[in-house]
């Protein structure tokens, strides 16, 4: 598992397109969403915890799209490159290799996203002189961003088992906006539910108060939108991890069935 994790991490991280695509989307965030601005107009600019929460919200609005799309060709890659015969003939376990590959490529694909997020935290520290922002950035990243990436990573990893990677990418972008970004009042959607990967249950249930004026109109599937509390924050983390585990189990099952 460690070998796969290490090499898949290295191969994904050295992929030029990873940095180019992330770079383009971060450029959009900076120019259109005013990402580097310290005053995002939601909270007091001098409150580091809240500032890191708002930065997380911006990061998870767009960058998971790149994250998912860059993961979408990783699982079929061995077959496409015809390396699978050599790998399968080694005594390493297929399950261990699958988990190692998943963890390695997801971690590598999350590196540019983490740089964008922690880069802003560093900027904040230098300008505001509040080193505690780095600590809050780490907590926010681990609790509010990472569980979503764990689930979305598994989904994007497994999707190309059913669809060609390019088709999957198009559908993934549609899923991301439909299931995570659009307002719940617009149409039936998974946005703002415990199945949404944006981490708002942790941000508003554990870390920061709900921003002023952040009201929710009633919508379809509201039974999946409990209030923001510490309990629902932990529930959301559990749901993300459970969904990721379920998707990876299906991938392993699919591989077992394909073995004959």
């Amino acid at each position: 598992m460690i070998a796969s994790l290490r090499y898949e991490f290295a191969m994904q991280l050295r992929r030029p397109s990873l940095w180019i695509v992330y770079g383009l989307v971060v450029a959009v965030m900076v120019t259109v969403l005013d990402y580097w601005s310290l005053d995002l107009g939601v909270y007091e600019v001098s409150a580091p915890k809240e500032a890191m929460g708002v930065a997380a919200q911006i990061v998870v609005t767009l960058l998971p799209i790149v994250y998912g799309c860059m993961l979408a060709d990783r699982l079929p890659r061995e077959r496409v490159l015809r390396v699978d015969g050599i790998l399968d003939a080694t005594p390493s376990g297929r399950t261990a290799r699958l988990i190692g590959k998943y963890a390695g490529v997801c971690a590598a694909t999350a590196v540019p996203l983490a740089i964008a997020y922690f880069g802003r935290a560093l900027l904040y520290v230098f300008v505001e002189g509040q080193p505690s922002a780095l600590g809050w950035a780490a907590v926010t990243f681990l609790a509010s961003i990472l569980p979503g990436l764990v689930f979305v990573g598994a989904l994007a990893f497994a999707g190309p088992l059913l669809l060609p990677p390019m088709v999957f990418r198009v559908l993934f972008v549609a899923y991301w906006f439909w299931g995570n970004v659009i307002p719940a009042s617009l149409m039936p959607t998974l946005s703002h539910t415990v199945f949404s990967a944006t981490g708002e249950y942790v941000r508003y249930g554990l870390l920061t108060p709900i921003p002023p004026g952040y009201g929710r109109a009633s919508a379809v599937l509201d039974f999946l939108r409990p209030g923001y509390t510490p309990a629902t924050a932990w529930l959301w983390i559990g749901v993300m991890i459970a969904l990721a585990a379920a998707v990876l189990s299906l991938v392993r099952l699919h591989a077992s069935r394909s073995e004959s």
Binding site: A3, M11, R82, G85, P91, S92
Partner: peptide, 22 residues
């Protein structure tokens, strides 16, 4: 139909397979 990882060097490719072989 032998395949390899095109972005790895021969040494790194062999290192990866060696790790998988224990």
């Amino acid at each position: 139909d032998l395949g390899v990882y095109p972005d790895l060097s021969a040494r790194r490719f062999l290192d990866y397979i060696a790790l998988l072989k224990g």
